[in-house]
């Protein structure tokens, strides 16, 4: 393979594999900035993946090429509903955030496969979808010489949308009234409450946004990579997203960068054997690499992780 092909393959597989992580990790940062730890991202992704695949299987005839895009939205909506469990449990019922998140992770695959078996006559996995979220070229940008071919031809459009969402989320959290209030609920809920901000409302917003984006993340994973739903469709991507969020220091753009890095590391595992020099390295090193590098980078550069001050706390409004 020549250099151009290698570069464009690396970029496109990186984008394809990072897109699910980008959306989910941005979702995680919304939840945690509002003060609710969300280890249930994995479960939310599972539900998003399941609902988008079922939608795609039944509705692709009706919606044609629009199916995968509506499917992402369906995944997001069902993810939001599912995250409501986490919101009610942690915000109103004072459940430990990690236990509640674990419940989402236990519940989602059980419910997903239970329903799959009900819908598809006892089969543990669905059939393959006919309208996947295929890679395509971005109209104007792909005309740019060299850069266009590497970055914008045969590429994952959702990943670029994810990058835009991350910039928008950063702006939303940092500069808008909504963002400041949401963060105040996660930094010092008592102070926020004393000036009349509804901590409960903003915490609900944080968790539900993470449900929406996590559901989309799961839907992207299913619709662009696995193309069906089974117990192994989401295999740790939710946890990776959680790691990306911490890696990016709770900043949506940082989380996006970390997610892109994870995507790059995963893509090396797939295309490493076609790249000269590193094709001699046994494949399992590439499989292990993303996780190993995360630990090393976390220890060497990030150090003590600085979560929002009241992250993981239960706020009880005084009467």
């Amino acid at each position: 393979m020549d250099l151009m092909t290698i570069l464009s393959t690396v970029v496109s597989t990186t984008l394809i594999y990072s897109a699910p992580l980008i959306f989910t990790s941005i979702g995680g940062s919304f939840s945690e900035h509002s003060g609710i730890v969300n280890v249930g991202l994995e479960g939310i992704m599972v539900i998003g993946a399941f609902s988008s695949i079922v939608f795609s299987l039944f509705m692709s005839k009706t919606f044609g090429w629009m199916t995968p895009w509506i499917g992402l939205f369906v995944g997001g909506i069902i993810g939001t509903l599912f995250s409501l469990i986490h919101a009610v449990a942690t915000i109103n019922w004072r459940t430990d955030h990690i236990i509640s998140g674990t419940v989402l992770n236990l519940m989602a695959p059980a419910l997903g496969i239970y329903l799959t078996k009900l819908i598809f006559d006892g089969k543990g996995q669905t059939g393959f979808i006919s309208q996947p979220l295929a890679s395509s070229k971005i109209p104007v940008l792909s005309k740019i010489p060299i850069i266009g071919k590497i970055f914008f031809e045969n590429t994952s459009i959702v990943a670029y949308i994810g990058i835009l969402v991350s910039i928008f989320s950063w702006w939303l959290l940092k500069y808008t009234r909504f963002g400041l209030r949401l963060r105040s609920a996660g930094e010092h809920p008592e102070a926020a409450d004393s000036v009349g901000i509804s901590v409960y409302f903003y915490r609900y917003c944080g968790v539900l946004i993470s449900g929406f984006l996590g559901g989309i993340g799961g839907a992207i994973m299913a619709e662009s990579i696995t193309l069906n739903f089974s117990g192994t469709t989401i295999a740790g991507q939710g946890f990776m997203s959680l790691a990306a969020m911490i890696f990016g220091k709770w900043n949506p753009i940082g989380a996006m960068g970390a997610a892109a890095f994870f995507g790059f590391a995963q893509s090396l595992a797939i295309i490493g054997k076609y790249i000269p020099i590193i094709d001699k390295i046994p494949n399992y090193w590439f499989t292990i690499a993303p996780y190993l590098i995360t630990i090393i980078v976390l220890v060497a550069f990030v150090g003590k992780s600085q979560a929002p001050a009241a992250d993981g706390s239960t706020f009880i409004k005084s009467k």
């Binding site: 740790g236 959680l242 292990i288 190993l292 995360t294 630990i295 220890v299 150090g303 003590k304």
Partner: peptide, 26 residues
């Protein structure tokens, strides 16, 4: 890593899970 570098054990143990899985398989 938690004791000496303050690295979140939630993240390191998750990462170590996958290293264990793929390392064991190899």
């Amino acid at each position: 890593l938690r004791a000496y570098f303050g690295t979140s054990e939630v993240i390191t143990t998750i990462m170590l899970n996958y290293i264990s899985l793929y390392g064991t398989n190899a």
